[in-house]
Amino acid sequence: MHQPIRAFIEEQFLIEFGDDFPEDTDLFRAGVMDSFGYVRLCRFLEQTYQFKFAEEEMTSNILVSLTRMEQFVDHKVSRGRAASG
């Protein structure tokens, strides 16, 4: 489920997650995330997992690390399933 996110970040930002670069690394502080890259990442998540970000959700640092993104996507997808079920 999460593999596409990891692959997208690794390809977009030319990094490899692992012991040297853990999944909970703050991508801004590590100098990996740039402004346009952030916007593209948002678009990618919306398209891949079929949801829309709400502006208010964006003020809780949900996209600063791979770990946070995965947690947020899980939450969004499960809420979407519950709503449709």
Partner: peptide, 17 residues
């Protein structure tokens, strides 16, 4: 051109950072 109206939430997140 690469920022589109639907990106408003993403830009909001960016500015928040």
């Amino acid at each position: 051109g690469h920022y589109q109206p639907q990106d408003i939430a993403a830009i909001t997140g960016l500015y928040h950072q």
